[in-house]
């Protein structure tokens, strides 16, 4: 199958590959997998006091489209607020990368990874708020 130039570009030169400290309270970690193809994706966000995503990292073991989708996702969410990032739809990724129908699940995986990272971050904030209350 022929990949689009944008997919190849992200695949050969992926943005934001790496790891953030998952024990840090300002870091949210999303971990998703696609049983259909066996791909695994980890996406992490670091959120500042203003609720803005100041850093994002990913690690994806999968096909070119899955790598490109997650690379693009980290690029897009950086500088966005958590709420803005949550609104990103997989269809936008499909459009930007020109993904063929058989690769749409890769973009779904990236959207799920963003949502899962945000959910993890929010859970930590609730826990932190809870523990400060107990401390008083």
């Amino acid at each position: 199958m022929a990949y689009s130039t944008k997919v190849i570009e992200h695949y050969e030169n992926p943005r934001n590959v790496g790891t953030l400290d998952k024990s840090d309270d300002s870091v949210g970690t999303g971990l998703v997998g696609a049983p259909a193809c066996g791909d695994v994706m980890r996406l992490q966000i670091k959120v500042n006091e203003q609720g803005v995503i100041e850093d994002a990292k990913f690690k994806t073991f999968g096909c070119g489209s899955a790598i490109a989708s997650s690379s693009l996702a980290t690029e897009w969410i950086k500088g966005k607020t958590v709420d803005e990032a949550e609104a990103i739809k997989n269809s936008q990724i499909v459009e930007e990368l020109n993904l063929p129908p058989v690769k749409i699940h890769c973009s779904v995986l990236a959207e799920d990874a963003i949502k899962s990272a945000i959910a993890d971050y929010r859970k930590k904030q609730v826990r932190r708020a809870g523990s400060t209350k107990h401390a008083k």
Binding site: L31, V32, G33, P35, V40, R42, K59, F61
Partner: peptide, 16 residues
């Protein structure tokens, strides 16, 4: 779809 996080974490580590 609901592969559990522990399994995914382990798979990711193995792939790494």
């Amino acid at each position: 779809l609901k592969a559990d996080p522990e399994f995914l974490m382990d798979m990711l580590e193995q792939r790494e």
